[in-house]
Design a protein around this nucleic acid. Structure first.
Lengths: 133, 133
DNA sequence: CTTGACCTTCCCGTGACTGGAACCCTTATG
DNA sequence: CATAAGGGTTCCAGTCACGGGAAGGTCAAG
């Protein structure tokens, strides 16, 4: 199978698939004309990667997950540890973004948003005068 | 004031302050020995930047906000538009992360996490067999 | 024989910095 | 006077996970 087919089958751009080869995540064969040739197993692997990436795992985590996936003697605890770590990072990021959102939403609410120059948003950015009174 | 003092006063690393000069966000004076010299106004501006960045505004948004901040005739609506747009992006990101979190949390819960190889997390990544039965 | 859709490699750009090398300026101390 | 410490300076490279685009090879159809 050529890279274009693999791309449609996995949803990954061809560029991304080449990149994954570059960094050693997949190693397709080569046809006589130099074209990459992918087996169903390669496609399966790339789908695994696409799914893991869509869940926000980093490339290095994907590499680890792939290794575990291909290790028939792996311990599920190892997989869960990676997932849990990632989960913690996601939770932290969510909290951080929620704080940003709350602050910003408050400022946007406080701003009348017309053609006058007075603006609580800028006042906050300027010096943390969070609307006195 | 030298860059080190500005760094402590604003909480921004010196490297970042130099970077902000590079991209034209601040333009400190220069002393005879080539050192950057910052006025209180520069520090104020950098604090503005630090606060805006901490709220997740991109550098380009910061540039726009700075321009509005320094335009005494600005309309608060313009500021609010930028903030609102940013708010939407934050909301979208939060939703995306929450979906990731929910999926991952489900998988982690389903994984017994011991030394056996059987693992629902890998099963999901492998092919979307989301635990049949 | 040409067209057009594929494929290849290669290099640059992204955002917002961070690390590090190699060097200059200033002050204090032996 | 040498030197060491602790500022500062420039410039280059790396991060992460690709994406854009150039320059060119390959293949099936008309």
């Amino acid at each position: 199978m050529n890279i274009g087919d693999v791309s449609t089958r996995t949803g990954l751009p061809a560029k991304t698939i080449r990149y994954y080869e570059d960094i050693g995540l997949v190693t397709p064969d080569r046809a006589g004309n130099g074209y990459r040739r992918f087996s169903p197993a390669h496609v399966h692997k790339l789908r695994f990667l696409a799914r893991a990436r869509s869940l926000g795992f980093s490339i290095e985590e994907c590499r680890d997950l792939l290794a575990l996936w291909e290790d028939r003697a792996r311990a599920s605890a190892d997989v869960r540890a990676i997932a849990n770590q990632h989960l913690d990072r996601i939770e932290a990021k969510i909290t951080e973004l929620q704080e940003m959102r709350d602050t910003l939403a408050g400022l946007v609410r406080a701003c009348h948003g017309d053609d006058r120059p007075d603006c609580p948003i800028l006042r906050d950015l300027e010096g943390g005068t969070p609307k006195a009174g």
